[in-house]
Nucleic acid binder design. Structure first.
Lengths: 190, 190
DNA sequence: CACATTTTTGAATGATCACTCAAAAATTTG
DNA sequence: CAAATTTTTGAGTGATCATTCAAAAATGTG
């Protein structure tokens, strides 16, 4: 065959799902072979090695997340209006069965300094999310205010990702973020 | 030998350090053998298996953390006064080289539903931390207020643990938590 | 349609995984 | 101090790990 036969996006979809759920280390190549339907040789030809497939899975996830985020931001007048909806969606997501937290957050915490390059790769995608919030906040805030508010939003998102993974209490999460982010336009939620 | 020869607390210290830094899956028994100085047979006689050693390491870490937290809370008049110092210490910690985030948070996110028992074990220790904050907050707050504030504090702590692991900006973290926790007695910090 | 090129196949590789166990050593007990 | 009990030792276990590669199959090219 001179043309690629498999659907790369479907392969990345299933690889992402496996890595997301089990983590980088705990996902074996044999699991990936089973999940993607590809034979070992095909994976190694297309992605180099396990780390290569992991990186492309991270990118696949990050691109979808960023696109989804930009879509949400575009739907509202201001970021102060959009964020309550975005955060509510994260909280709703966290109460689903088989909730896996955030692939980027999980990967960030799993990687140690021995995998500095991979860790930086993840870190870069997380910074991209923060800069999206920062840019939006610059419209109605000074640079210092926008920076602090973006950091606060990121910490609350991380909070939801961790808190929501070990407890199942939407109400508790909502009360927490309403208290911590009082400058958002919560009144437009209903 | 009819008496245990090795110092259990020293063994748990080094095992905790390895699990904390590398994660449960990525820490091999051979690494643990090298780090603890014990031979495989001794580890298995004392702790049953890798999971048993991991659980005792989690408990070792959790007990130290809770004791340290209780010590900090006892030093101040109110929890509103104590928390700025506690959070500042977490931020300072996050800027150290070889910072490993929080062992409990990392473990919580690493474990999937396939390891439900271990996951619950971690979850229980995290809830213990939250209930400590909740109890302290009950002194000056209604039950509903104390509950929401405790959730907010936990989310900010999770935020510091994740944010501080991928970025190195004490200032950004401080600005973020001052903004999100305005009801704390920040003025007593200096 | 033949030949060059590229992809797929899947059994096999050596390394490393968690874990075992019989023998040796250390300690308690009588 | 001798016998009983318990711990330590460390080479060895089969299973699973990431990865390879020669042969087969599928396409592009002239």
């Amino acid at each position: 065959m001179a043309r690629v036969q498999f659907d790369k996006s479907k392969v990345l979809e299933s690889a992402t799902h496996a890595f997301w759920r089990l983590g980088y280390t705990a996902t074996s190549m044999q699991t990936l072979v089973a999940q993607t339907g590809l034979k070992p040789g095909s994976i190694y030809l297309a992605f180099g090695n396990k780390e290569g497939l992991f990186k492309e899975s991270l990118d696949y996830y990050a691109e979808q997340s960023l696109a989804n985020l930009e879509g949400m931001l575009a739907q509202y007048e201001s970021i102060e209006e959009a964020l309550p909806h975005i955060l509510l969606a994260l909280i709703e997501e966290s109460s689903q069965s088989e909730y896996c937290s955030c692939f980027l957050v999980k990967s960030q915490l799993e990687l140690s300094d021995e995998q500095a390059e991979l860790k930086q790769h993840v870190s870069q995608r997380l910074r991209k999310v923060e800069s999206l919030y920062f840019e939006g906040l610059l419209k109605n805030n000074s640079e210092a205010e926008a920076s602090a508010k973006a950091a606060s939003v990121m910490m609350h998102i991380f909070g939801i990702r961790v808190y929501g993974y070990h407890t199942n209490s939407k109400e508790q999460l909502m009360n927490g973020i309403r208290l911590g982010l009082p400058w958002l336009a919560w009144e437009t939620l209903h």
